[in-house]
Design a protein around this nucleic acid. Structure first.
Length: 550
RNA sequence: UGGGGCGUCGCCAAGCGGCAAGGCAGCGGGUUUUGAUCCCGCCAUUCGGAGGUUCGAAUCCUCCCGCCCCAGCCA
């Protein structure tokens, strides 16, 4: 069930580049900085980049933009690779690292110095900010701007040799300190940081900035379309300036799209970290987190995520997608792929008076796909049904079990409720019912049809399971505007309970997904589920159109 | 108030001068041993606003309004 690619500006651009012979092969890249966990926004970028390469017969690289060792680490690299693979994509060749091009970047910096287009600047960070001017006023030239090529050469070599302190000097491009585009006001190319790098160790004490690295990484790898988000649009003139002024092997071009925003969720790294650190969630892979690892543990499928990303489209206008769209994509996928099973989350006993002996029923695992096969389901005189599915009295709209009325037990007989026990609080504890004869696979022959269908689990073979019912983490559409995030956390975002689940579920493996009929989609927890101690996470409930006041 | 973007149905989004796709949500109806799924139907005489060009404009021009991004030696 693949979604038809719909038109968007990137596909239009690529198609015309291909038609005009501007490029002969599409090469894209997903360039994360390994400084955190990937989230739904990255999933969008991944589907855009890998998806475009796939659609036009090209390739997509995975490249770690690791130019700032202070914030990066190998654990993120491993996690990112796992996430991309899980989403179902394969990068071209080995994973790449910006750090593997450091020597080349250094030589290109020397080239700029030789051309009189870069200089070593001794201004402190504070002074530099001062010299930069403001959004509405031009900057001033650095007093170090006119050093000789020889001096710049020597100084930059000394920077590389570790002769200066961190932050004492930088290498800057000599462009235009009065440019209305702040990125062109002699941007920093290299800074001194005596920090071990996760890939290059102690080899370097100077590190290139994003601006001096990204376009050149693209050029080295022969990237045809370098796709990023809108906030980099102002960097494009600089991106192009380096490509124009350096002897790079190819001519990549940058295109920007609007980043993905989803309501009722946050994606800022700072806020996500806050959720983890404050213990609101159990970790970066908590099923309520919009991280790829979190969504995976929640039970979302790679396919659902890919479809979602395609369905929301790719444009240049900022917007906020309704999380209902994500949920819809998940339901759509699970509806066709998830085997059905039965589980009772709020059990009350139901005793059947006229069942001769326990029976074993063969039930279809999917109502519309018989390739999913059948399973054995035990049925006996004592079963569990959901508390909400029984009422002593009800109006005609209520389609479940009512005293003196009939209901069909899913996959089994039609029963009639005869009486019930009620405890001191007025709560029903046991329902006594009788089977309407000849109703296995057929309607009652007296013409009195069952009012509805309810699910159930055999009491003697059913097993206990932990159920983690997840819901939206936030109570407001835009959690980022809250003064205090705690104020907008949904107190019911996780409700831990128990359920009686049918025996067949004992063989479920971690990450197996099911639809518990009439309840919702559930996934065996990736880490905590075992056959002996089943743990199921609620992925998402079934769409519920029942009228509230029945 | 410098520069760069964006404004099409409640939300996302196609459309690129010939007379408004699609998805989500919503609302009706049908089927149904899941109040699910599925199926059918409804849901922008109008494209931020005002002018203009044109036989014809969401698409071209002008002005205006609103929103987003940029002053890291982060990416």
């Amino acid at each position: 069930m693949d979604t038809e690619p719909r038109s968007n500006f990137l596909r239009t651009q690529i198609q015309s580049d291909l038609d005009a012979g501007v490029v002969d092969r599409v090469v894209t890249r997903f360039p994360p900085e390994p400084n955190g966990f990937l989230h739904i926004g990255h999933a969008k970028s991944i589907t855009v980049n890998f998806g475009l390469a796939e659609q036009y017969g090209g390739v997509c690289n995975l490249r770690f933009d690791d130019t700032n060792p202070e914030k990066e680490s190998q654990v993120f690299i491993d996690a990112i690779k796992a996430d991309v693979k899980w989403l179902g994509y394969e990068w071209d060749g080995e994973a790449r690292y910006a750090s593997s091009y450091f020597q080349q970047f250094f030589e290109w910096a020397l080239h700029l110095i030789d051309e009189g287009k870069a200089y070593v600047c001794d201004l402190s960070a504070d002074e530099a900010r001062d010299y930069r001017g403001t959004l509405t006023s031009p900057g001033k030239n650095s007093p170090y701007r006119n050093r000789s090529i020889a001096e710049n050469h020597a100084l930059f070599a000394a920077m590389k040799a570790g002769e200066f302190e961190d932050g004492s000097r930088v290498l800057r491009a000599k462009i235009d300190t009065a440019s209305p585009n702040i990125n062109l006001r002699d941007p920093t190319l290299y800074r001194i940081r005596r920090v071990a790098h996760h890939q290059t160790g102690d080899e370097w004490v100077i590190y290139p900035t994003y601006d001096f690295a990204h376009g050149q990484e693209d050029a080295i790898e022969g990237i045809s379309h370098s796709i990023c988000t809108l906030e980099f649009e102002d960097h494009k003139p600089l991106y192009d300036w380096f490509i124009d002024n350096l002897p790079v092997p190819s001519r990549p071009r940058q295109y920007e799209f609007a980043r993905l925003n989803v309501n009722f969720t946050v994606t800022s790294k700072r806020k996500l970290k806050l959720l983890v650190d404050s213990g609101v969630v159990s970790g970066w892979d908590d099923p309520r987190m919009p991280t790829i690892a979190g969504m995976r543990r929640r039970g979302y499928t790679p396919s659902a995520l890919r479809h979602f990303c395609e369905e929301v489209g790719t444009s240049r206008s900022d917007g906020v997608v309704d999380v209902a769209m994500l949920e819809s994509a998940v339901r759509n996928d699970l509806n066709v792929t998830a085997p059905r099973a039965m589980a009772v989350l709020n059990p009350i006993k139901l005793q059947i008076s006229n069942l001769e002996a326990p029976e074993v029923l063969m039930l279809a695992n999917h109502p519309a796909d018989n390739t999913l096969g059948k399973r054995e389901v035990h049925f006996g005189p004592k079963i569990w049904i959901d508390k909400d599915d029984f009422r002593q009295e009800a109006n005609k709209k209520f389609k479940r079990l009512v005293l003196g009325k009939r209901v069909r037990l899913r996959g089994s007989y039609v029963i009639e409720a005869d009486r019930c026990d009620v405890d001191a609080d007025g709560e029903v504890t046991t329902v006594y019912a009788s089977i309407v004869p000849q109703t296995l696979g057929e309607d009652p022959d007296d013409g009195v049809k069952a009012k509805g269908v309810i699910h159930w689990v055999d009491a003697t073979t059913g097993i206990l399971a932990e159920i983690r019912s997840y819901d939206r983490l936030f109570t407001v559409e835009d959690p980022s505007t809250a003064d205090n995030m705690d104020d907008v956390i949904n107190p019911a975002s996780l409700v831990v309970g128990q359920a009686i689940i049918e025996a067949s579920l004992a063989s479920a493996d971690p990450e197996d997904r099911f639809q518990f009929e009439r309840v919702g989609y559930f996934v065996a927890d990736r880490f905590d589920h075992t056959g002996g101690k089943p743990v199921f996470n609620r992925v998402i409930g079934l769409r519920d159109t029942r009228i509230s006041n029945d």
